[in-house]
Design a protein around this nucleic acid. Structure first.
Lengths: 187, 187
DNA sequence: CAATGCACTTTACATATGATAAGTAATTAC
DNA sequence: GTAATTACTTATCATATGTAAAGTGCATTG
């Protein structure tokens, strides 16, 4: 849990009792490469912390796999639109590599907020950050061309190219794998 | 302030002292149709509640006006990516109609969180809801075609068509006004 | 009331992206 | 180590959307 501890410290340090309470509703789980961590149609009741490996969130559009997002080590992952609405998600979470996670029971977490304001503050900040990332991603999709989005990805997250198949990156950028190939071929 | 009170009650009722504290950092402001509430390049330090009227958030892409979002009565508006990061926003907020707002001083609000956990919870929930809306919008842009997005807008927010010029709706949908015209002409 | 401007539509043409299919390279499985 | 599968690229053609320009209707204004 040391890794999660460091992550927490970097955002909002917790008093010992709050940490204990958090750990009491957390457990370690592992997933093999290419297996679903949570399937489509499942209501999100778990917040994951990635110890090792990589996850992606994806959706099936008329049977075609479309990637919404990637996450790697030392990040929190959840399908917010399901977690905060209580509705089933149309998206799944998949392990892109053999992945070790810490699973935090979300309903239990939300109950702990009453007793540990520091926990509420920590996760408020975590999800504010996630919100900001989502807005920035929205801007990217709405305001930039596919080629700009690819160049920005190269600039900002070059490691993604090393760890994620291009077919997933293509749909993440909002284009087909064929189109991404063309964009990459230009230069 | 009654209107804001009702809005708050619907999300997370506040004790009297927390309400007073919130009102003490809030003020009423008005904007004429087509004026900027906040300009591009401004760091967002205000959270607005719309009493009456309509706002949009927009961006200039190579000099071309692109609308990110619309908000109407009884909604909270802020540019999250600036508010929560402290960075200047590349986007502006504009009044689409003569608009009456309640302006909440955001840095002051964040300080109040220490003394009024109920305030922190209220705004945590408000921004969680906003986060969910942003994720749903991201899904819409990434997973659906322009025509599907228009049909969904018709279905879910038909009043927007009555209150907002089509040119703004077009860029909101990620297409040009010409392309929207074509989509509308089909049926 | 005429005139100007603005929102919107329509047309014609250009271009980017999609769909399909074939070919190559890399990876996985036996 | 070879075969089979998967990932990626390339080519061709179809299509949706963009750009530019012209036209229509409505509203605002002097």
């Amino acid at each position: 849990m040391q890794q999660l501890l460091n992550y927490i410290k970097s955002i909002h340090p917790l008093p010992a009792e709050a940490l204990e309470a958090l750990f009491s509703i957390s457990s370690e789980v592992s997933f093999k490469k290419n297996t679903d961590v949570q399937p489509i149609g499942h209501t999100c009741r778990t917040v994951y912390f990635i110890k090792k490996g990589a996850l992606r969130i994806y959706y099936l559009k008329d049977g075609v796999d479309v990637t919404e997002s990637f996450e790697f080590e030392n990040a929190i992952v959840a399908r917010a639109e399901s977690l905060f609405s209580g509705k089933p998600s149309k998206k799944a979470i998949q392990a892109l590599e053999d992945t070790a996670l810490i699973a935090i029971n979300a309903p239990a977490l939300f109950k702990l907020y009453d007793d540990y304001p520091s926990l509420e503050r920590l996760f408020r900040k975590i999800f504010e950050d996630a919100y900001v990332k989502t807005v920035v991603r929205l801007e990217s999709l709405q305001f930039h061309t596919a080629e700009e989005r690819y160049q920005n990805l190269l600039k900002d997250h070059p490691y993604i190219l090393q760890r994620v198949p291009l077919k997933y990156i293509a749909s993440y950028l909002g284009i087909t794998a064929v189109s991404l190939s063309r964009i990459r071929a230009i230069k």
